[in-house]
């Protein structure tokens, strides 16, 4: 078997010090295969976002290693080129794209700018790629020419995905990226993500508290609680036959016929 694209080993993050010290991520290990899709579930505060932020380099781990193609990202990059590559090959999409979009910049210009950061392209080639990205995520010429405020929530999330894909990453992290979308739009975006995976071979690290969405998108899943991994395995196995009490609680908390929330004991 070939080495995984991403291997996280004993990753730990503590915030604060002394009496106020909290461990946000505790000794977390997992692997993401090339072309794979790994889900991270867990209630809010379980350390999902902090894990993602360490992987993209926004947060420095307190311990452990992050191996991308075997290279440890917790160590300083050896060359300027290696540093640039680190900034390119893992991208992230958050829940609310509006806050991260420049309100005065047209969508197409925003995509062109990202392309300019990562690649040396002629003006024509840039234009061609912007159009290609628009096509990939379902944004037409008119939408590429508009400002963020003229777009709906679903369209803005398409922009955020296009912007992340402009860097041609090998891993796309989606942190609750579809959680706030209406059901009908969420289905469109989930189908889009599946098309992109087929077309581009990009791997997903998919963070969500929505188990049904995880089932639809992820081959494998890890369940986090209080910063630690409590269960991991193939998504179908984890959700159909959970071994850990917390995974069972998560599953039983999902509303359905005959649901009795009062019967759910919490440890």
């Amino acid at each position: 078997m070939s080495a995984p694209l991403l291997a996280v080993e004993n990753l730990t993050k503590r915030f604060g010090s002394g009496r106020t010290e909290t461990t946000a991520v505790a000794d977390v290990s997992f692997e993401l295969a090339s072309g794979g899709s790994l889900g991270i579930v867990g209630e809010s505060g379980s350390g999902k976002t902090t894990t993602a932020r360490m992987i993209i380099g926004l947060e420095k781990p307190s311990g452990g290693r992050i191996l991308f193609r075997g290279e440890d990202r917790t160590q300083p990059a050896r060359t300027a080129k290696a540093l640039r590559e680190r900034g390119r090959n893992v991208q992230i999409v958050f829940q609310d794209p509006y806050t991260s979009l420049d309100r005065r910049q047209r969508i197409g210009d925003c995509l062109a700018e990202v392309l300019g950061v990562h690649f040396k392209l002629s003006r024509d080639e840039t234009k061609r790629r912007v159009r290609g990205l628009g096509e990939l995520v379902g944004l037409d010429e008119r939408q590429l020419n508009s400002l963020p405020k003229a777009l709906s929530g679903g369209q803005r999330q398409r922009v955020a995905i296009a912007r992340a894909l402009a860097a041609e990453p090998e891993i796309l992290i989606l942190d609750e990226a579809v959680s706030a979308l209406d059901v009908s739009i969420q289905a469109q975006i989930l189908n889009l993500l599946s098309d992109i995976r087929d077309e581009r071979g990009v791997s997903y690290l998919f963070i969500s508290h929505d188990l049904a969405v995880i089932r639809q998108v992820c081959d494998d899943t890890i369940v986090m609680r209080h910063g630690a991994v409590v269960e991991q395995g193939a998504t179908a196995a984890v959700l159909d036959d959970p071994h850990h009490a917390y995974t069972r609680l998560l599953r039983d908390s999902v509303p359905r016929d005959g649901w009795d929330p009062a019967s759910l004991a919490r440890s």
Partner: peptide, 13 residues
């Protein structure tokens, strides 16, 4: 809406 017990080949969006 995706289902917790089943992965659809494609969601009927």
């Amino acid at each position: 809406r995706p289902e917790i017990g089943h992965r659809a080949r494609r969601l009927p969006a």
